[in-house]
Structures are given as C-alpha cells and as structure tokens.
Design a protein around this nucleic acid. Structure first.
Ligand code: SF4
Ligand code: SF4
Lengths: 159, 159
DNA sequence: GTATCTCGGATATCTGACATCCACGTTATA
DNA sequence: TATAACGTGGATGTCAGATATCCGAGATAC
C-alpha cells in the first residue's frame, strides 16, 4: 500500500514545466531535482503517453505541458505514473472452499469490494480537486514567493 | 499502489468470527475460505496484536472478536494488516539539486505532501465509516439471507 | 548532408510482498 | 501428570513489481 515515489517526481516536473515556455529536456529536469536522469526519463514517457506532456525530439527538444496547469489534476499524474488499477482487487474467495457460492450469485461485486471501491473513489475525488496550478501557487506561497522565480531563473540560465 | 490481499482474508475472517460464539481455530478459518493455512495464521497474528482478535491457546482454543462487530471498522482491519504508513511518503527532493531549499524553509510539510495527506484522510474516513456489522448485513442481503446461516451451520458441524 | 541532441523501448538489478515451515510456550482434557 | 491441540514468533524460500540503466530510432539545427 505504498505509492510509487515516481509520482512525486512527476508532480514536481509538471510544476516546473508550467514555468517554462520552451521545452525542457529530461536531463535538465533530473539535474534540477537531483534525481537519476535515466529513471526520470521512464516516468516522463508515461506522462507523455498519458497525454499530459508533449515531447519534441531534436537538439532543442524536450517536454512541455499539453494543457494549462489549471487543467491538469493531481489524479491525472497519479494515474499516468501508478496505473489506473484500483487499490483493492478481489480474489473471489467466495467461490472457493466448502461454502463456495454458485456462479449465478457472483454476478455483481460483493459488499467488501463495494466498500473498498467507495473509499477508493473518495481518494480519487480528493486528488481530482487539486490541480497543478494549485500546487504551484501553494509551493510559491510556502517559499514567500521566491520558489517559482528561482525556477524560472534557473531554467533561463545554463544549469 | 496495491493493497495487500491479506486484507480481504482478514475482513472475511472477522465477518465469520462475528457469527460464532466459540473461538475458531486458524486451520478451520483457512479451510472454510480455501486459502493457505500457514499464511493466514500470519495475518491472524497481526489482527491479534492490533487488539481486534483475542486468541486462546489450547485444544479448544482459537480466535474470537474482542468487540462486537459494530465496533470494528474496516479501517481497523486495514491498518492492522497493511500497516499504518501513509500511501505517500515524501522523498524531500526539495532539499536536493542546485535549487535546494535551506533547512529552515522545510520545517512544515510541503504543498504536495499536504494534498496527498488530504486524499489519504478521505480514503481512511470512508473506510472508517464501514463496520464489520455493515459488511455482514450486506453480504447476507446479497445472498438473500442464506450466507450467514450457512456459515453458522458449517461452524457448528465438523467441517 | 551530417552531427548532435532528444525520445522510446528493451534490459538488468533489487526490494518487499507472498507463502511456508518448524520449535516453543500455553491450555484443556484424559 | 501425560498428552494432544493450538497460537506465537522467527527463519526461510520464492516471485512479482518497483527501481535503475542502457543503447538504438528519429528529428532538428547547422
Ligand atoms: S466477499 Fe467480495 S472481496 Fe471477499 S471474496 Fe467475495 S467478492 Fe472477493
Ligand atoms: S515539494 Fe513536498 S513532496 Fe516534493 S520534495 Fe518537497 S516536501 Fe517532498
């Protein structure tokens, strides 16, 4: 029951990309965050396939957001990195053992699955209500308005 | 981001134990559900240490609930089996890289951690609102009132 | 046209979950 | 008291998935 730590990197990369008008390469994003470049590339590919990022090859290529940050929710990023599978997957043990139910009584999800699905929906709803723009604003406020300007400055410089 | 499947077994065992006045041994619980006995014993021990089950050694021993089913929430079981750790754990990458923040700005949790913690709280709240008694009632209703009577009959018999 | 920079998928390693077993202490029964 | 049944805790093996890395295909600037 642990979330892939790649989610944290992906969220930070989305916030960073929201501050840049030009594409940023995976290598520079990795250097900015101090994380292994080869592994970050893997996650950026997942974001690209999910339609959150747009990749441009070539010497001045890199990644850029496809939508404004206010249109990207944290749930989009989590789903792209961690996969769309629900946290709880029923093993159907009600069909096993001496009291196995007949298949005609297993058509719909059982009570346990329903309860877990409800909790999962609540989790996703909370994540869907937070956008990259919200995170950007909060991070900037936490740093008294210096974080994002620092990022923009670093992106403009050589790195 | 996947929940241990032992949670499913533990929930079913709690529902089953709610139907019995006498302790039930781990071997019989495993046979009833058709799952590996040696592994189920491990999870039952976790439930026992969490204070959800009370174990009685000896020839007629076994496990029994310490509280009425209405007083045991699904969250209690999940926490006992899967651990109390939150789903998201910050790697503190804001302290790494060329734009590392000074430690005095990292005293409180960042925006990303707060958003994840909020979603996690929503998930736990949904799970806390469901009790073993609720699950028992729903499962019985799904089977048109035959499931729990079948369980009681099987527990009374030889197995 | 070519050199270079980038993404993309394929590959290797490593952790933690899954599953099992056994020796031990405890308890009810004969 | 002797015995059988049961939970407890640790040690062990196995395996899927996360972690981490590499090199080739393709596009762009010069
Ligand atoms: S009760 Fe639900 S979770 Fe349990 S085995 Fe049946 S379908 Fe799966
Ligand atoms: S912004 Fe939050 S999640 Fe990201 S590195 Fe900082 S403390 Fe961790």
């Amino acid at each position: 029951m642990k979330l892939s730590n790649g989610v944290e990197w992906a969220l930070h990369c989305c916030v960073t990309l929201g501050q840049s008008q030009n594409p940023v390469s995976a290598a520079r994003l990795a250097k900015l965050h101090g994380i292994p470049p080869a592994y970050l590339a893997k996650h950026l590919q997942a974001l690209s396939q999910a339609g959150i990022l747009h990749s441009t090859p070539g010497p001045v290529g890199g990644y850029a957001l496809t939508r404004p940050p206010a249109r990207i929710s944290a749930l989009d990023v989590v789903r792209a990195i961690d996969g769309p599978e629900p946290t709880f997957r029923c093993t159907e043990i009600r069909k096993r053992g001496p009291l196995a139910l007949p298949p005609e009584e297993c058509m719909n999800a059982c009570a346990v699955s329903r309860a877990m699905a409800t909790a999962d929906a609540a989790w996703r709803a909370a994540l869907e209500g937070v956008t990259i723009a919200d995170l950007t604003q909060d991070i900037d406020a936490d740093s008294s308005g210096t974080a994002m300007s620092g990022v923009r400055e670093w992106l403009a410089g050589a790195g």
